[in-house]
């Protein structure tokens, strides 16, 4: 940089002399080729970047517009009748009891510990730990607890009195004492809180989400059927979780710790279809599948039995493989 040559005429450019005489190469052709190449490259790059346009969503079905127009017309006219859903016609007489036992095949996985980050003075006092209760297997008998069995559609319902005593649904030390419970529609439920801290009980699918002050309780009467069991949570302590099932006819049972269940007073002498549910089931909507073709056990967790009148029909041991409950 000794000389910036701002105005010196004798400042020779460095390389002009070097290349004198070698400029025989025509510029046009190869520069044009070169530039077109670049242009193409540019266009191609743009095209490549457009791969983002590809949809990765599930393909949506296209409605059949013509069928829709026809259907619309038929819906508008009142004449288009026909029964919606099939009613079950009664063919048998008398009442019978259904019983059975659910057994978990294999060794159950260790329950996960729940994360308790609130009200630890009460919930995890003295180093207590809370565990996920979704899969409870009896160590001695292998019985699978908290399986819900209920009748799907029955032709007739035995008249029984609605129990006057409310069903107690309690929570203590930040756990629901009954992780799965069943009730009849219209049966009062005493939602209790035996903790020194406040809880709220949120039964999804219903209008019930109520504050339950410490040591108090409140009455809840289910007004509608739930279909499959619905979740009950406490929003203050989000790890608390239970399931409730409400049935109009009351033909519903939850398996006990040994995996057994009993549903009394089912219509006998005719086919009764039952639905089985478990929280951890991998089937649709929690439907629990089992390999029992003799009962016509379907992938929707349904089986059919014909009960003896005034007797007890035992479907025996229902073996549930680990894969059916997602473990």
């Amino acid at each position: 940089m000794r000389n910036l040559c701002l105005s010196r005429e004798n400042c020779l450019p460095r390389r002009v002399g070097l290349t004198l005489g070698v400029s025989s190469r025509p510029g046009l052709q190869w520069s044009v080729a070169n530039c077109l190449l670049c242009t193409m490259l540019l266009c191609m790059t743009l095209l490549c970047t457009m791969t983002g346009c590809g949809q990765s969503r599930l393909p949506a079905p296209t409605p059949d517009s013509e069928a829709a127009i026809a259907l619309r017309a038929s819906l508008a006219s009142d004449s288009a009748g026909g029964a919606g859903g099939s009613e079950v016609v009664s063919t048998g007489t008398g009442w019978g009891t259904l019983t059975g036992r659910f057994v978990f095949v294999g060794s159950p996985p260790a329950a996960k510990q729940l994360i308790v980050d609130k009200d630890t003075a009460v919930c995890t006092a003295e180093g207590r730990k809370l565990f996920d209760q979704s899969l409870q297997v009896d160590e001695a008998t292998g019985g699978l607890a908290n399986v819900v069995v209920f009748a799907r559609k029955v032709s007739r319902v035995k008249e029984r009195e609605m129990p006057e005593e409310p069903l107690v649904f309690d929570q203590k030390v930040c756990e629901f004492l009954t992780p799965v419970f069943a009730a009849r529609v219209g049966q009062p439920i005493d939602v209790r809180n035996s903790d020194p801290i406040g809880h709220n009980t949120n039964v999804s699918g219903t209008s019930f989400n109520q504050l339950i002050p410490a040591g108090e309780g409140t009455l809840f009467t289910p007004a509608r059927e739930t279909g499959m069991p619905t979740m009950v949570t406490c929003n203050i302590h989000p790890w608390m979780k239970a399931y409730a099932v409400f049935r109009e006819d009351g033909y519903v049972a939850v398996t006990a710790a040994d995996g057994s269940f009993t549903i009394p007073d089912l219509p006998a002498g005719e086919e009764v279809e039952l639905q089985v549910w478990h929280e951890r089931s991998t089937g649709p909507n929690g439907a629990l599948a089992a390999d029992m073709p003799e009962l016509g056990w379907s992938s929707k967790g349904r089986f059919t039995v014909t009960l003896e009148a005034d007797g007890t029909t035992d479907i025996g041991e229902v073996q549930i493989p680990a894969s059916a409950v997602g473990s």
Binding site: W30, N34, L37, C38, T39, L42, C43
Partner: peptide, 26 residues
């Protein structure tokens, strides 16, 4: 080095020209 990574100022200038004209269109 001859057709793509040319070091000739004229070619580079034309490369710029063509690329920018494409972008001009966009």
């Amino acid at each position: 080095s001859t057709y793509v990574f040319s070091k000739d100022h004229k070619v580079i200038g034309l490369q710029f020209l063509f690329s920018t004209l494409v972008w001009f269109l966009i």
